[in-house]
Simulated assay, not measured.
Amino acid sequence: MRAGTVLVLIAGLLPLLGCASLPPRPPRGDPANCRVLFQNYDRAASLFQPYTYSARLDGRSTQTPALSVASNAIISNGCLTTTADLKGLESLQMKLGPRKPAESGAPIPPTAVHVGILTGGFSDAGRATAFFQSQGYETRTIGAEKLGRRLYIGPVRSEGALDQAIALAAEAGFPSAYPSDLFHFWKY
């Protein structure tokens, strides 16, 4: 066999070898458990806010141990939203059409809803943001080191609007949405 042919064969096999070493994606996490893990992450982030990341000698930053433990629990329990989890997002948007959230039930203080953490970068964040904005919600995303982009919608101002936002998130592929008191970014 000629050297060129061997190199072509090796180059063709390298991607296959690389894929074999990737860890399998954990199965989709239990929504109730994921909500608890997200809330633990929120607590760790708020407790260690000034010290969330520590500088290293090489100029990079690392998460504090508490935040790292919370991040690892979210990852290992399958609580992240991947591109595959959003496969029906655009068709759902077309089915629902544009609309506005309905305020109903008892009033509540303006509340943000943590929808989930997207692993597909700005592309998935853009898709999800466009979906929720078409449904009448303001949106914000925040980067979370080691995890992806956290997506928040709102504000909701009634129990009915909160329930509606959480149900819409679940229908869109985010089964672990919850009201977040950690993050307030709207002018009330």
Rank of each mutant, 00 (worst) to 15 (best):
161 A>H: 04
175 P>D: 00
99 R>I: 03
104 S>F: 06
102 A>C: 11
100 K>N: 07
118 L>G: 11
182 L>Y: 12
8 V>E: 13
46 S>E: 12
52 T>G: 05
59 G>H: 04
126 G>V: 08
66 A>R: 11
128 A>H: 01
144 A>V: 09
146 K>A: 08
119 T>N: 06
50 P>T: 05
23 P>D: 10
166 I>K: 00
148 G>H: 07
26 P>L: 05
59 G>C: 09
147 L>C: 01
70 A>D: 03
90 E>I: 06
43 R>Q: 14
133 Q>M: 11
113 V>L: 08
185 F>C: 07
51 Y>E: 12
122 F>R: 12
66 A>W: 13
84 A>E: 11
177 A>H: 04
37 L>F: 02
70 A>R: 09
40 N>Q: 05
94 M>S: 14
81 T>Q: 12
158 S>W: 00
73 A>C: 02
48 F>L: 14
31 P>Y: 03
25 R>S: 13
186 W>Q: 10
38 F>R: 00
177 A>W: 00
84 A>K: 12
181 D>Q: 15
98 P>H: 12
39 Q>E: 08
117 I>W: 00
91 S>Q: 15
142 I>M: 15
97 G>S: 09
137 Y>I: 01
22 L>D: 13
86 L>A: 07
151 L>K: 07
18 G>E: 05
180 S>P: 06
41 Y>R: 06
